[in-house]
Structures are given as structure tokens and as C-alpha cells.
Design a protein around this nucleic acid. Structure first.
Length: 547
DNA sequence: TCAAGTTTTCCTGTTT
DNA sequence: AAAACAGGAAAACTTG
């Protein structure tokens, strides 16, 4: 790699992003950037313009490279020889933030530029000397603590902007509390303007991902364990690529409490010791008060969004001023966490909550009209058993996850449950749809059902809301990916197909059909790992370009 | 209406 | 022991 990058010049859209950054959630940022793709296609992709979120940078880099390359080709503009330079700058930052060891390679070779958006799993400069060597310090140099870039012109000083994804989403509660109307309005404007790329479902970063904070680890379910793991990984800047999160997938909190440090090291060879130390603090060093009653459902017909937000102000945690469970001291070492006093949580949508006609924004900003988002329209007849056409309830727990014993108890006041019917074996094959949809519904569902499973999986992989929490690339260039929360992905797929009964077992069966059809290739000896064939990768890229 | 393609469901057995 | 994998069979569903 030779040559000196041209001087960076701030452009208007950067200003715009920076204005948006403090309050927009991940989806909002991502969509806002996509809005500007047209502009960016006219300019070399200066990835260092996109601070704060390495995953988003990474996904976005793929799109930007393709977009810019395509635009340059179509207009017969020469591709800059230093295009890859900026990518390297970007990925150095990513690596130093502890996210992923990956970089784009740079080449003036035509074929290389053809796939400039691909990811090469080469070595990436990981320290300041490497950056100096590449003369990129002025652009996006990272300091040795792997936490900050030193380009003040580009980076946001606001703690809001610098916070990681989990922090941002968790603190949304507080933002809503601080200024609910302004916040909700601005989020409405910003969030997910590109329906083709962002799903209309509640993000995994909704306040439920912090639910583990509310209870002793002994009472965590397997989802809480994963939420804690990802929170800790983000907080401590662990490298997701090295984190064996799948080994925690089926572990409950009580099981986790029983594990020794050796067990932790066995199931998580890289960070096991550190995780054990942090978990031990949670397990032994804290006191918890038993949470009071939790409202399971809320009747949306009676909800005024702003009133709901104001009401939440009285009940939700004040996380904005919360330094986090693992506040950092001057040495960037997590300190012993402290829990806040338990406060009633009136309602917080779960990561897999769906609601016909509304979708969730970021964090606890729950309700937004969904008319503009046909891509992931939740099906109308996928309703909670408690619901009725005029009274719709948000389901708090996904069907595949741990559920409260009585879904309807809040509204039915703990009625006695009838004895369970005798287990009957259903006939094999797909059951018939119970009710015929309306024309409108049929049209919408038709669009949704046009998407094949493998395309859905790819979209999820490209969505920073779900990657790496639900799925993640093992090697994006080769199309190798891994399920992190397999049942959660199955839930997403099931909701898309109006199928409450979808499980990973069934989803994986459908995936295995792809082996014969050449869409997927086997990855021997690795659980939950699949690989897109070259053909599939090419097809899905074509499709994305055509959007 | 039909055929082909796709997905879902159930199943048994194997591997990790 | 449990989860994941493998793949056959049958049925439901979509699309052209």
C-alpha cells in the first residue's frame, strides 16, 4: 500500500450525521446513512466519516464500496487507487475497538476492485506503529488503549455518541424520560426510513436486553445470560470474533452460578477468566431486592405514546446517569458493578415482540406507525391468545423463550386454567392456515413470503440490529456464518411467515435442504455454522444492488 | 388446474 | 444428557 491519502474534508452530510448521532439509535443512524448513499456514490467512501459504531461501519462499508464502485464504473470515472486505504483506516479503527479482525485489501487490480466491498481476513494494523507506518494517523488513528480514535474533528465528544450499542439502547429509557415528546418525535423521523433494509420488528437492543440487571444471576434464564454476555463484551471491548457466545446459549443463570473458573475457561477459552471474575461479582457481591409485579401486557388501543413515555418516566430506571454495571476506572479496567435499587418496570417490549400496525423504535420508544414498512409487516392474525380485533396486546415473551406461566393473567386476573387437553399427535406436514387474509393482508403477506429463508438469513446477517447478537459472520467473504441465538432467529423467521411454531430445529431442516440445491455448503464439525455458496452470495449481492 | 419448487412438520438415528 | 445434525417422508403452500 503506497501513496498518501488526500486531505480529508468534512462534508455536509457528516455534519448531518453528527447532528443525528446523539439520539438516533442504530437503525436510525444506519438508515440515515443509507439515505445519503446517492451522495456518497459520488465521492470516495471516507469511512472515517462514520464514527462510533464499528459494526455499522463494517456493514456500511460493504454497501458504500459497492455503491461507489458501481457509480464510478457507470460514469466511467476512474477508481481511486487509494480506495482501499480508507477501508484500512476504517478497519484499523474497528480492530482497535476490539470488534473484528478484518480489513479490506487494496488493489489497483480490476478484479479486486470488483469486490472491493468484500472482506479480506488479512491482518489489520492493530497498533499505533502500524498506523503510523501507513500514514493514516491523521485520518483515523487509534490510541493504544484501543478505545478512542484521536481525530477530534471526526469523533463525537458526546458520551451519547461514543456509547456502544447496548449503552445507547439501554439509556433510551432515560432519554424518553428526559424529553419524551422531542425524543419520540425525532426518533420517528429518523428511524428506519429504508424499509428494505431494516426489519420492522423490535430491536434486540430494547430494554429487555437489560432485564438481567433486575434480578440475581440465579434467576436469569438463558436469554438473560446471553444479554449479560453481550453487554459485558461490549463494555469490556472484547473481540466478538473470539467470543464463544454460542457456548453460553443454553446455560441458565442458576447453571452459570454453579460454574467454576475452570468451567468458564473451558467454555470460553479466551475471556473465560475475565468473565468469571465479572460474573462472580454479580453473583456474590451484590444484593437484590425482589422485583415487584411486572405488568405483562398493555392494551395498545388505549395508549397514547407520549403519555406512556411520561408514565414510564416514573417507573423506569434512570440509566442515563448510570455509569453502567462495569464502570471503568482510569486504567480502563472494569470495576465491581453495583446495582440500583429495584424499581417497577411497567412494561418493556422484548426482543421478539411484534405488534400488528406498530413497530418499535429504539429502546423503550415503543410505538410507531408501520405503514411505511411493508417489508417486515407483522402478520395480522398472529395474535396473542388474549387479543381481540379491537384490543391488541403486546406479547411480552416469545413463544420459544421462557414464558410466564399464564400469559393472560394480567387481564384475566388469574383465572383457573382448564386442565391441559390430552396430547394429540398432529398429522405430519404443514397445517392449513386457519383464516383467510383480507386482500390487503394477502398482498402484504405475499411480498413478505417472497423472501426465501436463505435470503432472510442473509438480511439478518447484514442487519446490525441482529449481527452479532443473533447471528454473525465467521467469514463474510467466504459466506460462513454462525447462529448465536438460533431460537431467536427462528422466532424472527416464524414471525415473518406467520408461524408461531417455528423452531430452530425446523429452520435448520429447511436450511439443510439448501445443501442439495447448492445454496448452502456444509461446514463439517462446527455446530450452528453454515456457509453460503458462491452462487448464493453472488445472487444476494445482485439483489441488494438492484434495490 | 397442474406441476414444480419451497417450506414445514414429524420422525428416527447419529454426532458432538 | 442435551443439543445439534442428518435426512426421509409427507403435507402445505407458492408460483408460473
Amino acid at each position: 500500500m503506497t501513496g498518501k491519502p488526500p486531505t480529508y474534508q468534512r462534508t455536509n452530510h457528516v455534519e448531518k450525521y453528527n447532528q443525528n448521532m446523539p439520539t438516533a439509535g442504530t437503525g436510525g443512524q444506519f438508515c440515515s446513512m443509507l439515505d445519503d448513499i446517492e451522495h456518497l456514490s459520488e465521492h470516495p467512501p471516507y469511512f472515517s466519516e462514520f464514527p462510533t459504531h464499528e459494526r455499522m461501519n463494517f456493514e456500511f462499508a460493504d454497501i458504500l464500496c459497492d455503491s461507489y464502485t458501481d457509480a464510478a464504473r457507470s460514469q466511467k470515472r476512474p477508481l481511486p487507487s487509494d480506495l482501499g486505504y480508507y477501508q484500512d483506516a476504517n478497519y484499523c479503527a474497528n480492530t482497535n475497538k476490539g470488534s473484528m479482525n478484518r480489513t479490506c485489501s487494496m488493489s489497483s487490480d480490476e478484479n479486486q476492485l470488483e469486490t472491493i466491498g468484500d472482506i479480506h481476513y488479512n491482518n489489520c494494523c492493530t497498533n499505533e506503529s502500524d498506523l503510523n507506518q501507513h500514514s493514516m494517523k491523521q485520518f483515523n488513528a487509534c490510541n493504544t488503549t484501543n478505545r478512542m480514535c484521536n481525530n477530534n474533528d471526526l469523533m463525537c465528544n458526546s458520551s451519547d455518541r461514543m456509547c456502544n450499542n447496548v449503552e445507547r439502547l439501554c439509556s433510551t429509557n432515560d432519554r424518553i424520560c428526559n424529553n419524551p415528546e422531542q425524543q419520540l418525535c425525532s426518533n420517528n423521523e429518523r428511524t428506519c426510513t429504508n424499509a428494505n433494509r431494516i426489519y420492522n420488528i423490535s430491536p434486540p437492543g430494547s430494554p429487555d436486553v437489560c432485564r438481567w440487571r433486575n434480578k440475581h444471576p440465579e434467576n436469569w434464564n438463558s436469554k438473560d445470560v446471553l444479554d449479560w454476555l453481550f453487554y459485558t463484551a461490549e463494555k469490556c471491548n472484547l473481540e466478538f470474533s473470539k467470543l464463544h457466545s454460542e457456548n453460553f446459549q443454553s446455560i441458565s443463570g442458576s447453571d452459570l452460578c454453579k460454574l467454576s473458573i475452570e468451567d468458564f475457561e473451558r467454555i470460553e477459552s479466551v475471556y473465560g477468566r475475565m468473565l468469571y471474575s465479572l460474573f462472580k461479582d454479580l453473583r456474590d457481591g451484590l444484593s437484590f431486592s425482589k422485583p415487584p409485579d411486572v405488568t405483562e401486557y398493555i392494551d395498545l388501543d388505549d395508549v397514547d405514546v407520549f403519555e406512556n413515555a411520561k408514565r414510564s418516566q416514573k417507573t423506569l430506571y434512570h440509566m442515563n446517569s448510570d455509569p453502567g454495571l462495569y464502570p471503568y476506572n482510569n486504567n480502563n479496567v472494569p470495576e465491581i458493578p453495583r446495582y440500583r435499587e429495584e424499581i417497577k418496570v411497567e412494561r418493556s417490549p422484548g426482543p421478539y415482540d411484534f405488534h400488528p400496525g406498530f413497530r418499535y423504535g429504539c429502546g423503550n420508544q415503543p410505538l410507531q406507525p408501520m405503514h411505511d414498512f411493508p417489508h417486515f409487516q407483522p402478520p395480522h392474525h398472529r395474535m396473542n391468545p388474549c387479543s381481540s380485533p379491537n384490543s391488541q396486546f403486546i406479547r411480552r415473551f416469545p413463544s420459544s423463550m421462557s414464558q410466564p406461566p399464564n400469559r393472560c393473567s394480567m387481564h384475566e386476573n388469574v383465572q383457573a386454567q382448564p386442565p391441559p387437553p390430552p396430547i394429540q399427535r398432529r398429522r405430519p406436514g404443514r397445517p392449513r392456515i386457519k383464516s383467510l387474509p383480507t386482500d390487503e393482508e394477502a398482498s402484504r403477506e405475499k411480498k413478505v413470503k417472497n423472501q426465501h429463508l436463505w435470503e432472510f438469513i442473509y438480511e439478518v446477517l447484514m442487519n446490525p440490529m441482529y449481527n452479532p447478537q443473533y447471528v454473525r459472520w465467521e467469514n463474510q467473504r467466504e459466506g460462513v456464518f454462525r447462529f448465536v441465538q438460533s431460537e431467536a432467529v427462528a422466532q424472527l423467521w416464524g414471525s415473518l411467515k406467520n408461524n408461531d411454531n417455528m423452531t430452530y430445529e425446523k429452520l435448520s431442516r429447511a436450511m439443510r435442504h439448501y445443501y442439495k440445491r447448492g445454496i448452502l455448503e456444509r461446514v463439517e464439525g462446527r455446530r450452528l455454522v453454515y456457509k453460503f455458496s458462491r452462487v448464493a452470495m453472488d445472487r444476494v449481492r445482485e439483489k441488494r444492488h438492484s434495490i
